[in-house]
Computed example of a mutant assay.
Amino acid sequence: MEDITLRNLWKAQDEKLDRTMKLNLFILESLQKQKAQSKLNGLARLKLVAVILGIVWSLFLGMLIYGNQLQNIYFTVSVGMIMLITVAAIAIYINHIALIKNLDYSQSITYTQKKLAKLQASTFNNRFIVLQMPFYTTWFWSTQMIESSGIKFWLIAVPITLAFTLLTIWLFKNLTPLNMHKNWVKFLVKNDPEHRPVMQAQKFLNEIEEFKKAS
């Protein structure tokens, strides 16, 4: 009789502990998902501001190109390339906003983690913006300037543009998820206002998984 009573007490205690663990998991999961959602919503607002500013900047550059009327081919090509790259960056940002807004936090943690991994990988596409760099060194070129500068143009302006071009190519090739093991890439990512919220959201979700394993 005492053995049956003892087993019933143990069973009741186990059920109580199980309910407590499930409740704690539910509370933790709800809280961590809210934190992740808050971080990502802030990121979406940041990207929306970037989209608006990018559109304004692109329109301004378009006006400059129209006003130039191909009078200076260096200016037209340089500003045109900056505008095209800006438009491409706007499209990337809009895609990021859509990814964030389409996240379903009611789905499993695994589902959300996969979506965040996709967002993080896509965020590296922002390196596309660095392709503008060389064109900021050529927009002021003109036939008259080249002729009047003579050797100075080839010794100063051209090497500067070449240096920026090589730096741009190097950054574009190396700023990828495959190089996340490199310290300089880690540093840039951790301090990037676009990467940091995604990493923080991933950390919040990982804490749920760690709690599940511990329990």
Rank of each mutant, 00 (worst) to 15 (best):
T161D: 09
E147S: 05
S148A: 09
I94P: 15
Y105P: 11
L119R: 03
Y111S: 13
Q113M: 10
A98S: 15
N95W: 07
Q107P: 15
I129C: 07
V158F: 08
T112L: 08
F153N: 00
W154R: 05
S122Y: 10
K114A: 08
K152E: 06
F164C: 02
V130F: 10
T112W: 02
Y93I: 10
P159E: 10
L131H: 08
L131G: 06
L103F: 07
A89E: 09
F140G: 09
L131Q: 11
A91V: 12
H96E: 11
N126E: 12
A89H: 14
T168E: 10
K114G: 05
L103H: 04
G150N: 01
T110C: 14
F172Q: 02
L171G: 08
A157V: 03
A163M: 15
I109P: 01
G150R: 03
K152P: 03
I109W: 02
I169S: 07
D104A: 07
L155A: 04
F153A: 00
Q113V: 06
H96S: 13
F153I: 02
L99H: 14
S106H: 15
W154G: 05
G150H: 02
F153Y: 01
I129F: 10
F172K: 02
W139M: 09
I109K: 04
H96D: 11
Y111I: 11
I129L: 14
K152F: 13
T137H: 14
T110S: 13
W170G: 05
T123R: 14
S108D: 05
V130K: 14
N102F: 12
Q120V: 12
Y93F: 11
R127Y: 10
Q132C: 08
S142D: 00
L171E: 06
I156K: 05
M133E: 14
W154N: 14
K115H: 08
F140V: 06
A91D: 15
F124I: 01
N126R: 08
D104L: 06
I92W: 11
Q132G: 12
M145L: 05
Y105K: 08
Y93H: 13
T143C: 02
T138R: 01
Q132M: 14
K118V: 13
M145P: 01
Q107I: 15
I156P: 00
Q120N: 11
P159Y: 10
I109A: 04
K118R: 14
L99S: 15
Q132L: 13
T168H: 06
A98W: 12
W154F: 12
T165W: 01
Y111N: 13
F164Q: 02
M133P: 14
A91N: 09
Y93A: 13
Q120K: 07
L171W: 08
Y136Q: 03
I151Q: 09
L131K: 07
S122F: 15
T110F: 09
L99Y: 12
A157Q: 07
W170I: 06
K152C: 04
